[in-house]
């Protein structure tokens, strides 16, 4: 891990990984969308609207996944003062907020025909909304200081404190009797979802993960470049 504390080493790795991640995203997105929209059967109860699932569920998974990785990176940033962990958390937060917003919006579109309401104050929905505000708070705190490292450290502590919400979201459908359905893929006794629907779902999840990887690498490279520009400008004014 400390090998990649050197930005040059990291950039070499990033340049090697990025095209592969982009290719994986493109292939899985096309295949997942084709299987999801054309090849998979409509649900026996929900009809065609079940196809919202192929965007909604991967986005919700990513919302939790990105926050978890961000909390892990924040931990590394605080304990080992890893310079790129700060950068990663800063780069990942807006993407995670985007995934959370997609999950909330598609969930709302799905809720209207199924539950008869755009929004219900259900434990799962409310806790995901809280997650969205945690992302926004993280972004606001990162940018609230004149000195970037101070903002990064403060945001890292906030990310760790806010991590208590992640298990609450994951298990909210098991702990409380909610309108939102319980988990049907990640279960101890195996998925209860039919393979014809599981495959497009998994392909879309891989596509979303690859997309996240692409974007986060892009944003980290941009941030490293911006820091170099800043350092060069300082050097010029000093010299």
């Amino acid at each position: 891990m400390h090998r990649y504390a050197n930005p040059a080493q990291f950039l070499r790795l990033a340049r090697a990984v990025q095209p592969w991640a982009a290719a994986l995203t493109a292939v899985c997105l096309v295949a997942g969308l084709y299987l999801g929209i054309f090849a998979s059967p409509p649900d026996y109860q929900q009809g065609e609207s079940v196809r919202i699932m192929y965007v909604h569920v991967p986005a919700a998974w990513m919302a939790l996944f990105v926050y978890t990785v961000m909390a892990a990176a924040s931990f590394a940033a605080l304990v080992w003062k890893h310079p790129l962990a700060d950068l990663f958390a800063k780069a990942a937060a807006p993407i995670g907020a985007g995934f959370t917003l997609i999950a909330l919006a598609t969930g709302s579109l799905w809720g209207k025909p199924m539950w008869g309401a755009w929004w219900v104050w259900d434990a799962r929905l409310t806790s995901v909304l809280v997650l969205f505000f945690l992302y926004l708070g993280h972004m606001a705190l990162t940018n609230a200081f004149d000195e970037p490292t101070r903002g990064a450290r403060a945001a890292a502590i906030l990310a760790l404190v806010g991590f208590v919400n992640v298990p609450i979201i994951k298990f909210s459908v098991d702990w409380w009797n909610t309108l939102h359905q319980p988990s049907s893929v990640l279960r101890l006794d195996g998925p209860t979802i039919d393979p014809s629907m599981l495959w497009p779902l998994l392909l879309m999840a891989i596509a979303f993960t690859g997309y996240f990887l692409c974007l986060v690498i892009l944003r980290m490279r941009a941030e490293i470049a911006a820091r170099r520009v800043r350092a060069l400008r300082f050097g010029r004014t000093a010299g």
Binding site: A144, D146, A154
Partner: peptide, 26 residues
């Protein structure tokens, strides 16, 4: 925690509310 995090921030008072209110919900 929120009060300690925003020390030295611009517009700290408003920021505390944004950081802390989601954590107050439980």
């Amino acid at each position: 925690i929120g009060a300690a995090l925003v020390l030295g921030a611009r517009r700290g008072g408003v920021l505390v509310s944004l950081l802390v209110l989601p954590l107050y919900i439980p």
